[in-house]
Design a protein around this nucleic acid. Sequence first.
DNA 1: TTTGATGCAAATGTTTTGCATTGCA
DNA 2: TGCAATGCAAAACATTTGCATCAAA
Lengths: 144, 144
Amino acid sequence: MDMDKYAVLLKTKGLKVTSPRVTVLDIFNQSQARHLSAEDVYKKVLEHEGDIGLATVYRVLTQFAEVGILVATNFETGKTTFELNEGGHHDHLVCLSCGSVVEFHDPDVEARQEEIAKKHGFKLINHSMSLYGLCSKPQCRESA
Amino acid sequence: MDMDKYAVLLKTKGLKVTSPRVTVLDIFNQSQARHLSAEDVYKKVLEHEGDIGLATVYRVLTQFAEVGILVATNFETGKTTFELNEGGHHDHLVCLSCGSVVEFHDPDVEARQEEIAKKHGFKLINHSMSLYGLCSKPQCRESA
DNA sequence: TTTGATGCAAATGTTTTGCATTGCA
DNA sequence: TGCAATGCAAAACATTTGCATCAAA
C-alpha cells in the first residue's frame, strides 16, 4: 500500500496524518479522471472509502492546494476542480460537449505571457488559460 | 441622451426596449470600471438609477451576454464579471493586490492556441486566458 | 391584446463557518 | 495531554426559478 508514501508527503507539508487526508490522497491517486471537484471527491468517499463530511472534503482540498499537493482550477462550470500537482505547469483544453479535459504545456505561450506582463508593468504570479471547444469524438462534433 | 442609441441596439438584438435593459446599458456606458459583476450593477442601480430587482439584473446580464452586447468572464473570484463587447477579443491581466484589470490582445498567442487545439483534435470555440500578478503601483508591489 | 419582461420570494448549488467532539503527536 | 482536525448543521454567497403582475409592440 501507498499509505506510507502518503504519510511522508503529509508530514513533509507539515500536516498531520489523518484518515480524511489519506483518503483524499488515495482518491486522487486511484482516480481515472485527473480533475475532481469537491463533490466528485465526496461521492467517491461515500461509494468506496470511509465516511468523511463534505465540509472536511472542502477543508482538505483547500489545504492541499495551499501546500501544493493539489492545484485548483476554475473552469466555466461554476465549481472549482482539483488535480494532483505533479510539478509541470500546464493549461487545459476542455470539450464543451463531453467535458473531457486535455492538458498541454506550451513554452511559446508561456514566454509570450511573460512578455505581455512585463510590457504592462505587471509582475506575473500565475495564470490560467483554458481553451474551450469540441473534442474529436463524433458525438461531440455533431453537437455543434 | 443616448437613450435612442440604446433602443436601437436592443431592437437590433431582438429585445424589447424596457427600462431595466436601458438602465443596465447606461450603467455599463457610464461606468468607470469596465468589468462589473451582477452585484456591482445592482449596487449602481440602487445608488443612482431606478429600482430593478436583483433577479432582473441577472436575467438582463445573461441575455446581453447571449446576444453579444456583453461578454462574461470568470476570474478567480467566484463571481462572473461582465463588460461591454466592443468587438475586439481580448484577454486580461489582473492585479491580485488592487484588483485592477488591464486588457490585452496578442495575435501570437491566439495563433498558437489554434495550433494547440488542432494538434489535439479539438475544434476551438472560445478560450479564456487570465494572467494574475501585481501591477506597477508601489503599494501593490509591496504586498508581495 | 398578446407575449414577453419584471418583481418578489423561495429554491438551488457551492462553499464556508461555528461549535462541540475526537484523535494525532 | 493539548492543539489541530473532524462532523454536523447552520450560514453565507452567487445565481436561478416559479408565479402572479405588468408593460412593450
